[in-house]
């Protein structure tokens, strides 16, 4: 029974993980796998339907091979999904831990700031930030980092508060640990796994937002291929060549499902494993995988 349950849980994790790895690999190996130059097109071949000779997925309005562009686009799109999450994970952990350990004033200041950032719907905050910057991948990454950091900070803050009065921290303090050592060696190892699991569940969302920003013209500049930008480029052909125009939309949908499923699986999986461990002795928390309550990780 146990092995069956575990086996199923494993499949639920390995399948989306394999697909995600494949997507990353395709993007990395774009120069090797893409059949054509993503930026070069022949106007004579414009808007060919899928299944045309030499262009299995057809061509766009400038006669560029869609399959090649979709593969190359993975680079910018996945960067736009992963980098902001990484930035937010680091910045959010720092903010959350400092606020969690700091005094009342620090704590209140941070919480009020997070409240304000939370008051914006995510896409709007990203738009407000990105519209200030020169359109490009950098603008997307910066804007999404700003959007995702408060959520991570809140998770890190809650975790820090949970261990703040733990005896092992008091022990570290009386043995003369300074502030830096306290944060880096005692608190961060406890908070990090929770943040990592939480951050992994943000990747799907970030990819979706990144493509959305490019769709709005705030992301990569042409002729760079990016899924959201391709969606916008092909939009005028929607009524005449629907099967060409929907391809970026389908790709974003599939990628979003893959990464969301993976994030979800990681959350439940690690939550499940942790539930089987004995409750951690606070003194060991820095060295042992600590139980993570999967339910509490969400925003």
């Amino acid at each position: 029974m146990t092995s069956r349950v575990l086996g199923r849980a494993n499949l639920g994790l390995t399948f989306p993980a394999a697909l995600a790895a494949l997507l990353l690999l395709l993007a990395l190996a774009a120069p090797l796998v893409a059949p054509d130059d993503p930026a070069a097109g022949r106007l004579a071949d414009r808007l060919l339907d899928p299944g045309s000779p030499g262009h299995p997925l057809g061509t766009d309005g400038q006669g560029r091979d869609l399959l090649s562009r979709l593969i190359w686009a993975g680079r910018a799109s996945l960067t736009g999904g992963f980098v902001p999450v990484a930035v937010a994970a680091v910045a959010g952990t720092l903010l959350g831990v400092v606020a969690g350990l700091g005094g009342r004033t620090t704590e209140q200041a941070l919480l009020r700031l997070l409240d304000v950032l939370y008051a914006f719907p995510g896409v709007l905050l990203a738009i407000a930030v990105a519209s200030l910057l020169t359109p490009g991948l950098g603008a997307t990454v910066l804007a999404l980092s700003v959007v995702l950091t408060p959520a991570v900070a809140r998770v890190a803050f809650t975790e820090t508060r949970r261990v703040r009065s733990a005896e092992y921290l008091a022990a570290a303090r009386v043995s003369g640990a300074g502030w830096g050592a306290l944060v880096l060696r005692q608190v961060a190892p406890v908070v990090a796994p929770v943040v990592l699991v939480y951050a992994s569940s943000l990747v799907g969302l970030a990819i979706m937002y990144a493509a959305g920003l490019s769709f709005l013209g705030l992301g990569v500049a042409p002729p760079t291929a990016e899924w959201g930008a391709m969606l916008e480029e092909l939009r005028p052909s929607l009524l005449t060549h629907p099967w060409v125009a929907v391809q970026p939309a389908l790709v974003i949908l599939v990628v979003s499902v893959v990464f969301n499923t993976l994030g979800e699986a990681l959350r439940t999986r690690i939550g499940d494993t942790a539930a089987q461990l004995p409750p951690s002795a606070p003194a060991m928390a820095g060295r042992l995988p600590r139980p993570i309550a999967a339910k509490r990780v969400g925003v």
């Binding site: 969606l231 939009r235 929607l238 629907p242 099967w243 939309a249 969301n260 979800e264």
Partner: peptide
């Protein structure tokens, strides 16, 4: 519900237009 949660609005919008407005011509685009 898992599929719905991961479905970006712009992807869904384009697919709906392609199928129901352009393909089937049931509804306006």
């Amino acid at each position: 519900s898992a599929l719905a949660v991961s479905a970006p609005q712009y992807s869904v919008a384009l697919l709906l237009i392609a199928v129901f407005a352009v393909g089937l011509r049931w509804l306006p685009a």
